[in-house]
Structure formats: C-alpha cells, structure tokens
Simulated assay, not measured.
Amino acid sequence: MSESSRVQLKKILVSRYAYLVKRLERGTGSKDGATEALHETWLRLENANVAAPVANADAYILGMANHVAIDQHRSERRHRHEEDVDALLELPDELADPERIVAARLKVETLKGILRGLTPRRRAILLAARVDGQLNREIAERFGISLRLVESELSAAMKYCLEHMHELGDPHAGSRSGPRKF
C-alpha cells in the first residue's frame, strides 16, 4: 500500500472513529471489543500491503477491523479455555476420600472375581465391548463368529455379572450404562 493510501486510511479512521466503533460494536457485542479491534487495525494499517487504491475506505477499514476482532475472539477463547482447565485442575477431588477409594478398589476386585467365572470367550467379548469400546461387528470379525452370537454372548455375560454383583449386595447391580457403540 502506498504511503499516501495509508495516511488517507488513518485519517478516515480517526475522523470516522465514532461511526466505525458503532458499526463494529454490533459484530463484537461490546464497545470495548470494537475499540480494541480499531486500535489493532490502526497498527496493522502501518504494514498493510495493497497495490490498488482503496475505493471504499469505510468498507476496507471495517473489513480489516472485523478480521482483527475475529482473531482477538479466537485468542481470548483459547486463553479462557486454558484458564478454565487450570482452574479445574486446582479443585480438590471431593470423591477421592479414602473410604470411597477403598470401596471402589474392593468393587473392582469383586468384579474381577466374577469375570473369572465366565468362559474365556464370553469374558473376552465382554471386555472388548465394555472396556475397549469395540463395535459388535468388530468383535464378530475378531472371533470369527456371527454378529448374533456376539450379541447373545454379550447379553449372557452382562446378565451373569449383574446377577453375581446383586448377590454380593451391590446396590447399583441393575445398572447397564457404559460406553457402547453399536
């Protein structure tokens, strides 16, 4: 961009500043965001590189300021997300009291014992589905069996585990929720 074009655009930005802020305020949602975008636009005009003369200075400045506002929004969102993650990592884990930890470990050991009571294929199908999150179709291919047989084995394995957990007094034994993709 020629020096005269830069000077002219800067003069227009200064003379029409209030109008440009109002126009940008609609897009940014705040007057502060609009003024920040225009200030950054002023700085970017110094390095702008446009060979042809600018026909509509307002449109050029507003377009440039809109791009600046979008960049600022993305940057703030990224930083805000990082700050949120840092804040969440600082929160104490209310569920990590020693009593709950011991109870959870005991439940895992109990479930391991129940799983040992399953046939090897049934146990492998259950673990592939519920732990590894494999699709029934993938399990059928892996074991060289029909999809129907996978569904049957998985259902039988779940029923077996739920019944044994219930017998051992687990109050959540009726729950079948878990990560599954069919």
Rank of each mutant, 00 (worst) to 15 (best):
V85N: 05
L106E: 12
E83C: 14
D97Q: 09
S155Y: 11
D71L: 05
R176M: 14
H79T: 03
E25L: 10
L162M: 08
L111W: 13
H81L: 07
Q134N: 03
E109V: 00
A140K: 00
E90A: 13
S4P: 13
R123K: 08
D32P: 01
L95G: 10
L162W: 07
V54T: 01
G117S: 11
V68K: 00
E76M: 04
R78T: 10
L24G: 08
G133D: 08
K107G: 13
Q72S: 12
S175C: 11
L127W: 13
K10N: 13
A104L: 05
A65T: 04
R116F: 02
N56I: 01
S146A: 10
T28G: 04
G178L: 10
V21F: 15
A51L: 04
L154E: 03
Y60K: 00
L106Y: 00
K31M: 06
G29H: 00
A51S: 07
L115E: 01
D170Y: 06
Y19D: 12
P98K: 08
R26K: 11
N56Q: 04
E138F: 09
A140R: 00
R78E: 13
V102Q: 06
S5K: 03
H164E: 15
D86C: 05
Y19Q: 09
P98A: 12
L135G: 02
L9A: 07
L9I: 07
P179L: 15
I61S: 00
D93I: 13
D84F: 08
K22D: 15
A48K: 02
L91T: 15
E3Y: 07
R148F: 00
S4G: 13
L162V: 08
G169K: 09
A129L: 10
S146I: 07
V68W: 01
G33H: 11
H164A: 06
L13T: 14
E76V: 06
P92E: 15
L88E: 15
S175F: 12
M165F: 05
G133L: 11
E3D: 09
E82R: 09
N56Y: 07
I114T: 06
V50P: 02
A55E: 10
